[in-house]
């Protein structure tokens, strides 16, 4: 059983990322239930999604129960930190250095270098997949994104994924 919170600003692809992770886990035969934010908050506001892998009925993670907090925006991390377990890990898109309990990658800069700022989410996912205990592996992400029927989208996503996977 793994519980995750994903957060960011509207437009950063939090919902997309949640679906990708959820679909990969579900394809492995795991029970997955998640909850998304839609509506007004999506217009640049704070958004988060909950993703629970295991035997659950409810799609919501309780405070103090998330194993991972994936944050696409440094400012949103604090808004969602209370969901994290005491020994949980934050994986954050930020230019700052790692701290105990926080792993960071400058996904914004990497995505901009690739040429599409919207790829931040895929970069972050690639980076997170290297972490011990993360429910989805880099290989699984690669296989999933490679199955996109749109050649241009596929190529960009894979590029972003590799950048996240190989980031030092």
């Amino acid at each position: 059983m793994v519980e995750l919170i994903l957060c960011g600003r509207g437009g950063q692809g939090v919902v997309f990322l949640t679906r990708v992770l959820g679909q990969i886990a579900a394809a492995k035969g795991l029970n997955v239930i998640s909850s998304e934010t839609h509506g007004m908050a999506v217009r640049g506001g704070s958004i988060n999604s909950h993703l629970r892998i295991g035997r659950f009925y409810s799609p919501l993670v309780r405070r103090g129960h998330a194993d991972f907090l994936l944050s696409l925006d440094h400012g949103e991390t604090a808004n969602n930190r209370h969901f994290l377990r005491i020994d949980g890990l934050i994986v954050e898109n930020s230019a700052q250095e790692d701290e105990p309990g926080i792993r960071r990658i400058d996904a914004t800069r990497i995505a901009r270098d690739i040429g599409r700022i919207q790829l931040e989410n895929v970069v972050l996912a690639g980076f997170a997949s290297r972490i011990n205990g993360f429910p989805v592996s880099g290989e699984e992400l690669r296989a999933f994104l490679a199955a996109d029927p749109r050649p241009a989208v596929r190529e960009m996503n894979l590029k972003a994924l590799e950048a996240g996977l190989s980031w030092e």
Binding site: M40, R43, G44, G45, S46, R63, N79, H82
Partner: peptide, 15 residues
């Protein structure tokens, strides 16, 4: 006893 919540949500705005 739970982790305290410090939420300062960003307000939504027109794109």
């Amino acid at each position: 006893e739970r982790t305290p919540v410090e939420v300062k949500p960003r307000r939504p705005s027109l794109c």
